[in-house]
């Protein structure tokens, strides 16, 4: 297996995640895209781990950390989306422009 096949796959997933992050209007959909990006990162980490075979399986450990943080982040993120939804009864991010000029 060539390392690059994993890396290219991961970069593809990441790019798709970026697209979703920028193009989606619903807040939850944006968060989904973020998850996609994080998944791509995980693939990268594990692929490098497999290549490098470090003593403590560093890549895999970090991958676990990433998963954990992602989970925490989703929890809080959805909590915020809920709060916004309570105030505005709309889940569209393009209406959140109070910081507009």
């Amino acid at each position: 297996m060539i390392l690059n096949q994993f890396l290219v796959l991961a970069s593809l997933l990441f790019a798709l995640g970026v697209y979703g992050l920028l193009a989606r209007r619903n807040a939850v959909a944006v968060l989904l895209s973020v998850e996609l990006m994080l998944a791509a990162v995980n693939i990268n980490l594990v692929a490098f781990e497999a290549t490098l075979r470090s003593t403590f399986a560093t890549g895999q450990i970090f991958s676990i950390f990433v998963i954990t943080v992602a989970a925490a982040e989703v929890g809080i993120g959805l909590g915020i989306v809920l709060m916004i939804f309570r105030n505005r009864t709309s889940g569209n991010v393009d209406e959140l422009d109070l910081m507009k000029w």
């Binding site: 992050l21 920028l22 193009a23 944006v30 991010v93 959140l96 422009d97 000029w101």
Partner: peptide, 17 residues
């Protein structure tokens, strides 16, 4: 320049990327 401050986070994110 202030027109850059659209208030839309996704646009900011796009700029980051």
């Amino acid at each position: 320049l202030r027109l850059l401050q659209t208030g839309k986070v996704q646009q900011y994110a796009g700029a980051f990327v």
